[in-house]
Every structure is written in C-alpha cells, then in structure tokens.
Design a binder for these strands. Structure first.
Length: 733
DNA sequence: ATAGGGTTAG
C-alpha cells in the first residue's frame, strides 16, 4: 500500500521523507482484501490475529487496520499499534487522527498530529479538519491559533474543508470564551436568568475568537454553503440574533440557498424570542422546500412552537415527522411538560419506552418536573431507579431535576442525599436545594447552603436570591433578608427584580410591619405589579387589618381591575370580620366582571395513582367511606379539644352549616382518603392548588396526633409537615 | 474529511 501523496494547493515547504517500504507478497494482498471487508471480521481476537499476520508480512501497519479497529470500536488497539510503529506512514497518521477524533479521543488525535509534524511526515488530505475539530473540542485557543498559523504558512488554508473546519473551530472557541466570561455563574438560561450579563455583553467588546471567525470568513476567496452555515450558527449561538438573520440574507445575495442546516440554526432564535409569526414563516419556507421532514428542523420547530405555547402545532409537527428520533421525542415531551401538560408528557414518555426508544439524560430532566408538579413521589422514585441503572445520575441536569422532584414531593432529606451525591453541584442544583429548605422550613440550612454556594460553587444569580429571600421570608428572618437584598446589588451587581421586592414585601408583611412594607413597595425603582401588592393583602388578613387591606386592594384594582386574588381575599377579610354585606358586594362585583373563583382541589398519590378531590365532591368511589372516617375523626378531635374556626368560610350561613362546610374541604377529603387507603404509619402527602385554610391547618394538626402519622401538605406557597399535633411552619404562613 | 436539533432551579 502506497501512501497517497496529496499536495496542498500551494506548498511553500517541501518535506523530504523516506518512501514507504512496499511488499507485494500474495499474503499482503489477501490481508488487504480482508481488511477492506470489515464486516467479515467481527471480534477483537479476529482483528488481533489479522494484526499479527500483518505485522509478520508487512513492515508497517496498513491504515486500513486502523479503520478496522475503529469500526470495531477498538481504538485502544489502534493506538497501541500506532505507538509501536516506529515510523507510521502518512495515511496511518491520517487514519489514527481521524479515528481518534471521531471517537472523541481528542488528546490522542492531537498528540498524533504533533508526532506527525515533528517526524516530518507529509500531511495527507482529511487530516486537518479532524485536527481542527479536536482543537475546538478541547477548547484550547492557543493550540487553535498555532494550527491557524500553520495553515497560513503551509497554504492549507486555501482548502475548502480545512478553512470551514477552522471557521467552526473559532465558533466553538468563541462560545467557550463566552462561557468562561460568565462563569462561575453557570450557563445562560434561555429565559434570560442572567439578563444583566446579556445587556452587559452587548456593550463590551466581542471576544477575540468571534473576531477570528469573521476574519477567516472574510478572507476566504470563495465560500460555500457550509462556510455560510457555520458562520450563521456561530453568530446565532453567540447571541447575536440580528446579525445572524442578516447573514441569511447575505447568503441569498451570494447566490446560495438556505438549507436544512441554515434553518435549524436560526429557528432557536425565534424560539428564544417567542416570535411565533416569524417561526411560522420559517416553517412555511421549510414546507415549500420539502425540508419539513428533516428531523433536525422538526425538533427545532417542535421546540419553537413549544416555547410559543402553541402545543397543538407542536404536536402536529411531531405527528407528521416521518422518522422522529430520540431528540424529537424529547423535545415534544419537554414541550408538553413546559406547557404544564404533565399527564400528556408522562403518557408520551411511556409511549416512548414502549416503542423501545432509549431514553437519554435529557429525557429524564425533561420529564422529572412533571413528577415534581404533580407530587408523584412514587413515580419519581421509579424514574430515579431507572436513572441510576442507566448511569444518568452523573448528569447535572438530571440530578438537579431529581433534587427538585424530591423537594416538591415533600422529601427534603432524600433531596439532600441526591444533592450530596453529586460530583460537582452547580448553581441550579444548589438553588433547587435552597428553595427546598425555604419551602419546607429549615431556614438556617438554606442560609448555610447559600454561603457554601458563594464560597465553593459560584456567583449566585437572580433565582438563587429568590430562593434565599424566600427562605428568610418563610422563617421571618427580617434582618437577614435585608442583608441579602442589599448584597445582591452591592456584591454581585444584580438589579433586584419584582420577585425580590415581592419576597421582601411579603416578609415585612408577615412580620406585621405593614406600613413599612407599603412604603417599600411604593418606593420601588420599578413599577409594582398587582402580584407584589397582593403579598400585602395576605399579610393584612393574617394580621386582621381590614382597613389596610382596603388600601392595598385599591392599589391592586388600579392595576388589575379583574385581579382574582384581591377579590377573593377581600371577600375573606370581610367575612372574617363578619361584614357579610360587604363580602357579598365583592362577590357580586366578581360576578359582574365575569370572574369565577378558581375551584379548590387537593390530590394524593396512592399506589401509583392520583386521586383528586374537590370540596363536597361526591364522585370518588370511596366517598361514603371517606365521610364516615371524617366523622369518626371529628369526634376524636373534638374530644381532644378541637374547636372549628369558621372565619375562612365565605358564606353568611349558620354556624352549624359552616362546620359542615369545613369538613368537606378538599384537603380534608384527601387526607381522610390517605388514612383509610394506606397502611398505618405511612406518611400522607397531600397537595392543594391554593393556600391551606386556617381551620384545615388546625384540624390536620389534631389528625396527625390522633392517627400517629406524619402528614405533609404542599399548598400554593410552601410545605406543612404535621407531626404529633405540631406543624413545621409553626403557624406562620 | 468540514456545518445543524433537545434538558434542570423562581
């Protein structure tokens, strides 16, 4: 086998090298023909026998041997043979560099290249694109620049494939540069979690690698579709959306038609900017050019429609994809879950498993939030088992979603165990854990984890501050909250957002500092929304200050005349004060404005199934048994000293009737069902879509003591752990 | 031989 000489277009340097030794024995041609037919060799030992024969008959390993080893995924054998060879031929080098890069062994690829250069072996074709890809993969800008210099000196830069690979390398390096600049705050979220950095970035000088991309592109004497697509993808990935779109135009002007690569790199732009109209236009373009059956475009379209909340279109794209792959399935599952269609997401996930499509780490991080939202602890545990068996728990996305799932399903200890098992926790997983402590009560744990995050993990972002402020708020830590609130702008350059103001206002309100909270909101640097004001409404109810509530309510209705929470809470406050006429008036207003109260419901997972209850809803098959159990329980509770607290009952009815109404509250039905359908001692976990009412809170404390069980109730705002007549919230919620 | 799609915390 003769090494094929391939001269670069202009070669300023001539390298003298010894000619390869040739052997024309019949055995060699037999071996070569065997090597050319890799399907005839299927085991490692066959490959090694062949290798041995080859060594005896042939002075140098054939490059085909390396291809064979690579095809059998035996790269270590290939590398061994390569290192044993005192002077590999040019094509052996090429083959080793190519296989190593293709198999992700970038260091091996690059060291082979270095050895090749120092031995003076001439470069075969197809070597440099692999070398450039390896430089990009190991994110080494210095090595990349050195290879760039070599390309210029040797003239290889004039080769299309090489120049395009160089472009791509600078795009990848530029993204690495960008990530380094933002670290250790972590990667940028699509929702603009690091908004301040985004605006900051547009002001500062772009990284040198992005400049190199432009430079290489501009200096290319000719550009093909790949050059344009690489430039466009790199520009879009670096967040320069308008420029990327302009380049698509530039490409057309240059006489090149956008293809499936072009479309799949610009579609994420419309997804991110929630530009449904433009995204749909691209969809139309894809259809007209028969590109809509491409899985890459399909997955991008699915993601774009999901982000634009058009679930119908998203499903249609998925259904019409002729050959959806695992990523198309993932995008659709993620799209459903992100649009709060949790059951549909879980069903599609099951369908995927039934069709034997192998789930990937992303599949789990996409589906886990569905378990978290639905409080499906048992299902989540099953998936956790799958994750462990598949070795997916090394993935930070998967582990973070697991931490969050256990937190939301009420098991903060297992969440912590998963968190502690993470080899390198990041801001997101830390925040999930801090939020877990915030929701469950142990504020000191939240604060100490936050301190650890600052020291060991990285710069906290907006979400992390929301979590720590929520922890302070739920525990009534006023001084600490102020400290963190000031710290975020002073130490980290983060401008407080609505949710941070809301957390502080909520805290001040809970602590009874109503006027201080009012002034705080009034002097915010951004215009307060109805939801910020309504934190004070809840506070004025807890502190029974109807006058203050009226003042706040007026503020809210100024902004949102149809704000549901404000109406309901005002009605509650009037009812509690016995001002039935005013309460009725609020309800009349709601009717006039065409508002309907969101129905309260609670649910519980028993034997891997969800059971949902609405107040006074008799549709559950066990309804009679549940009522019977509640009767017995109420009797015991009364004996223990339970006095119904009827102030949350909205209606102007007799006391006796009110008590009956309290008994029918959805969470009480769910708790009673949990007691009679699970073995004694089992923890009961109930989720409610609204806040727990005062009476149910008291009743649940009694029930936990009577039945000797821990009862975990997740409401709209936080968790309540009832045990032995006490609640973890210490009646402060 | 070079280019493309999906995920976690509020």
């Amino acid at each position: 086998m003769q090494a094929r000489e391939f001269s670069p277009p202009t070669s300023p340097r001539r390298i003298i090298y010894p000619p390869p030794m040739l052997s024309n024995s019949p055995i060699t041609s037999l071996l070569d023909s065997l090597l050319r037919c890799p399907s005839s060799i299927q085991t490692r030992s066959q490959a090694q026998q062949l290798h041995a024969l080859l060594l005896k008959s042939h002075p140098r390993p054939s490059p085909l041997l390396f291809s064979l080893y690579s095809a059998l995924a035996l790269v270590s054998d290939a590398l061994l043979a390569f290192s044993a060879d005192p002077s590999p031929s040019s094509s052996c080098y090429a083959e080793v560099i190519r296989c190593s890069t293709a198999r992700g062994l970038f260091d091996h690829s690059l060291s082979a290249f270095v050895r090749m250069r120092s031995s003076g072996t001439p470069l075969g074709h197809a070597v440099l694109p692999s070398v450039l890809k390896s430089c990009a993969a190991i994110r080494d800008p210095h090595l990349g620049a050195a290879v760039h210099g070599f390309l210029i000196r040797s003239g290889w830069i004039a080769d299309f494939f090489t120049a395009n690979a160089l472009l791509n390398m600078y795009c990848k390096l530029s993204r690495a540069e960008d990530e380094r600049r933002n670290s250790p705050a972590g990667a940028m979220g699509r929702d603009g979690a690091n908004g301040d950095l985004t605006s900051f970035r547009s002001m500062q000088v772009q990284g040198s690698c992005l400049k190199s991309v432009r430079m290489v592109f501009d200096e290319m004497p000719e550009r093909d579709v790949v050059s344009w697509n690489t430039l466009i993808a790199g520009t879009a990935e670096n967040g320069m959306y308008l420029e990327a779109l302009d380049m698509v135009k530039g490409m057309s002007v240059a006489g090149l038609k956008p293809d499936s690569f072009t479309l799949s790199s610009i579609l994420p732009i419309f997804a991110e900017h929630v530009d449904y109209k433009k995204g749909k236009e691209i969809h139309g373009f894809a259809k007209r050019h028969a590109l809509d059956s491409d899985v890459f475009i399909g997955s991008s379209l699915i993601d774009m429609y999901a982000n634009c909340t058009n679930v119908d279109y998203m499903c249609r794209v998925f259904d019409l994809l002729p050959n959806p792959d695992a990523i198309s399935w993932n995008s659709t599952i993620a799209g459903l879950v992100q649009n709060a269609m949790f059951d549909e997401g879980l069903n599609l996930f099951r369908e995927m498993l039934l069709l034997q499509i192998k789930p990937m780490p992303v599949t789990f991080s996409s589906i886990m939030p569905a378990c978290a939202h639905l409080t499906r602890l048992h299902l989540g545990k099953q998936l956790h088992g799958y994750v462990i068996r598949g070795g997916f728990n090394r993935n930070v996305f998967v582990s973070s979603s697991l931490v969050d799932m256990y937190v939301k399903c009420g098991n903060v200890h297992i969440a912590r165990r998963v968190f502690d098992g993470m080899p390198s926790p990041d801001i997101v997983s830390c925040t999930a854990m801090i939020m877990g402590y915030a929701l469950h009560g142990p504020a000191q744990e939240a604060l100490s984890l936050f301190r650890r995050m600052e020291m060991e993990i990285g710069k906290p972002n907006h979400v992390a501050f929301v979590a720590v402020l929520t922890a302070c708020s739920h525990a009534g830590l006023v001084d600490e909250a102020w400290e963190y609130f000031h710290k975020m702008s002073k130490n980290y350059g983060l401008t407080p957002r609505l949710e941070h103001y809301a957390a502080v206002a909520d805290l001040l309100g809970r602590a009874g500092k109503l006027e201080e909270a009012y002034d705080f909101i009034s002097t915010m640097h951004i215009k307060p929304t109805a939801s910020v004001w309504s934190t004070l409404l809840a506070a004025s109810r807890v502190h029974k200050n109807a006058k203050f509530a009226e003042k706040v309510s007026a503020k809210i209705l100024e902004i949102e005349p149809k704000d549901m929470g404000s109406h309901v809470l005002m009605s509650n406050i009037y009812s509690a004060a016995g001002r039935w006429k005013e309460a009725a008036k609020v309800r009349m207003t709601m009717k006039h404005k065409g508002m309907r109260k969101r129905p309260a419901y609670s649910w519980i997972e028993v034997k891997n199934e969800l059971h949902a209850f609405m107040a006074h809803d008799k549709s559950h098959p066990w309804y009679d048994k549940i009522m019977k159990a509640l009767e017995v329980l109420t009797e015991q509770m009364t004996r223990e000293g339970y006095v119904p607290n009827t102030e949350d009952v909205l209606h102007d009815v007799e006391e006796e009737q009110k008590r009956h109404m309290l008994c029918g509250h959805s969470e009480r039905l769910a708790i009673a069902f949990g007691i009679i359908s699970t073995p004694p001692g089992t923890t009961i976990r109930v989720t409610k879509n609204l806040r727990v009412c005062v009476d149910c809170h008291t009743a649940t404390k009694f029930i936990s003591k009577i039945v000797g069980r821990e009862i975990v109730v997740r409401d709209l705002n936080r968790f309540h752990h009832f045990r032995d007549g006490e609640c973890s919230c210490k009646d402060y919620w």
